[in-house]
Amino acid sequence: MQNLVDGILTGSYISLAAIGLTLVMHILRFANFSHAELLSVGAYAALVFDKAFAAVFPIAATKLAPLSLTLALLAAIVVSMAFTGATAILIDRLVFRRVRDKGNELSMVFASFGMALVMRNLIALGFGLHSQLYSRDIAFAVILSRDPLILVKPDQVFVLGAALVLMAALHLVLTRTTFGFALRAVAENPALAQVNGVDLGRMIAATWVIAGMLAAAAGVFYGLSYQLIPIMGRDLVLPVFAATIVGGIGSVYGAVLGGFIVGIASNLALLVLPSGYSPAVPFLLILAVLILRPNGLFGEARA
């Protein structure tokens, strides 16, 4: 049971990250290996903004009991989401768009492979290889149930709640606003979207902003649940890819479900496999999906 609860919590940030990745993979048509590094960018940016806000407004640095979260960190999350969205656009302008304009779709994967290495290690050079925490205070777990024993930290509940709020917000944007229709239209048929007056360049930028914002939130939530470490992107890239494939590339709802499936499966796997094998679990899920349902739970075949 504890593993199931942990799995749901893990799933909440994997889902957030996978939504952005699935959108990018669908609209820009490439497997972005540097997507998980946007989580690191967001997590570390929040760390910096958190310290800055706490220094400027000491009052904001008090904990919102029972969370270890402070007002400063809450504000830092919001600012970091904007910052990471902007970073995602900047990287697109500097690298991906230029590769795209040369007309070589396959090279985008390759470029993202290189970018992942650059981003990850620049963060290591800037922040050090050691791990860091948003708060040094020990957050006590709350006992949800004694038999079976289930422990949950208040921060984890916040993470799950915040992730669900963000997903609901995205859902509303996609189903209630013409901007959302335009984004879905581009995902389905870019040429037809253009004919209907949708500016493709702007929608690509919007895709990056959404991907960056959700990745930043996911990165902070990962940091709150565990710790910040520059190689977090390396450990997250495969679970996030697995979530998109399980859900079906291009499906936002598939990515949400895929994220929770990956999170739960990884935690349940601990019951049967030694923890050393955990990194391989997402790959096993990918294999299972490729064998059983190659286009994922919600995906459509597309060349």
């Binding site: 993979m25 490439f30 497997a31 290996f33 396959l106 994967v109 890239v237 495969l238 890819f241 697995a242 494939i245 590339i249 990194p279 391989a280 997402p282 790959f283 096993l284 990918i286 294999l287 490729l290 190659p294 286009n295 597309r302 060349a303």
Partner: peptide, 17 residues
């Protein structure tokens, strides 16, 4: 047989596994 992303991701995954 699938779109080219799948090979990239699966080979990456096979290395991790």
């Amino acid at each position: 047989r699938l779109r080219h992303d799948y090979l990239a991701i699966a080979t990456f995954g096979v290395a991790v596994a």
